[in-house]
Write a protein that binds this DNA or RNA. Structure first.
Lengths: 203, 203
DNA sequence: CTGACTTTATACTGACCGGTACAGAAAGCT
DNA sequence: AGCTTTCTGTACCGGTCAGTATAAAGTCAG
């Protein structure tokens, strides 16, 4: 961390590491949601002052979007891994297990950022909410395609509805996130996943 | 509506109907969440001024709790009906269908108040959040008991884990709520429910 | 009518919100 | 050296938040 700028700019050099500060911002947004995270919360966690934040990241909206990018590339890697699994069941299992790992990391549980942001209130956050929903929809489409392929490949029965099954799996993931924020233990979430997988349609 | 006080008190009589005002408050809290609903939003929707609100309902916290009571008795009636169904499958179906009806009522979709409140941000709402989680936990216990009974009565296979199945069903309900707030259509949610029920363990 | 009592509306409180003006500090360029 | 450029900290902006002081208005008992 605190790596210097690769090409030293003109003017006074920045005294903090942008990547590290963004990681701290992500932590705050993840814990408190978009509206719940005040600029005071953010700047204190990032160790910088307000004007530095605005100079480096624009405004709260664009800081959140940058944090969201980091979240997707870092914390949602398990989703990309899951999609590459050979069977639909393994796709589901990797997603569910990865989701529990994700919400149970870092001591106290925090749910999925997508759920937190899209459920959180206020017309002020409408723009970021739409962004989150848009990103989620792309994932939903990809998952549906994956299940269509699985049915063609014979590892899902012919009678299943790929889009419906996608919505069920997404609902389970969202449920895991909600229950985590409500204080569910890892053991309870593991049991949710075990029971969910026990219901999964066999080929 | 606007029914008069049954026993006329001393002093100037109240000029609004408490029940009607509370119903309007519920509508606002349901749409915007606890923190997202400002006193200005509330008083405008209720048609009363701030001091009247405080005189009649205490403060924002206690107004929310009273609205929550109303929500449980009015909007969550389907849950009590569902619990009384003869088989576990019918319990699940009534809950899922009722949940979709619930989040799809009143034109634009709003999710479950429990989910909205428990996921919504900020340490200021911690107290009401704990209240919501506490009420939800009681429901979870009751549902687990219901599935244990179902297994004893033979309408659930012996190998299922009642608590795990309870968490799966709750997760589906929470997923329905989240997807509704994200703008899912009734048709999409119906498909979620159909696919979920198709997975339900048969006796 | 008078006084006790309660609800009404206006207008305010201090605290916090996201965002910024300003001036000083630290670097490169010439 | 000076000059330009960029960052840093302080101190502030108008707006909104939950909650309330105050006084007028309305209804009772006597």
């Amino acid at each position: 961390m605190n790596k210097p700028e690769p090409v030293p700019h003109r003017g006074r050099p920045r005294e903090f590491c942008v990547d590290h500060a963004l990681a701290q911002a992500l932590r705050v947004f993840w814990e408190k949601g978009y509206e719940g995270a005040s600029l005071t919360d953010l700047t204190e966690a990032m160790g910088i002052t307000r004007p530095s934040l605005y100079a480096a990241f624009g405004n709260k909206d664009s800081l959140f979007r940058k944090a969201l990018d980091l979240y997707e590339t870092e914390k949602l890697a398990y989703i990309r891994q899951a999609m590459a699994q050979p069977t639909a069941r393994q796709v589901a299992e990797r997603m569910l297990r990865g989701s529990v790992d994700n919400v149970m990391s870092c001591a106290q549980p925090h749910g999925c950022m997508g759920v937190i942001t899209s459920v959180a209130c206020g017309p002020e956050a409408q723009s970021v909410r739409e962004e989150v929903v848009k990103r989620g929809d792309a994932g939903k489409r990809a998952l549906t395609e994956r299940f269509i392929r699985a049915r063609e490949e014979g590892d899902l029965p012919a009678h299943v509805d790929p889009e419906g099954l996608m919505r069920v799996l997404i609902a389970l993931l969202q449920g895991i996130s909600v229950q985590a924020t409500q204080g569910a233990s890892r053991q309870e979430l593991d049991r949710l996943v075990d029971s969910g997988l026990a219901l999964w349609p066999s080929a």
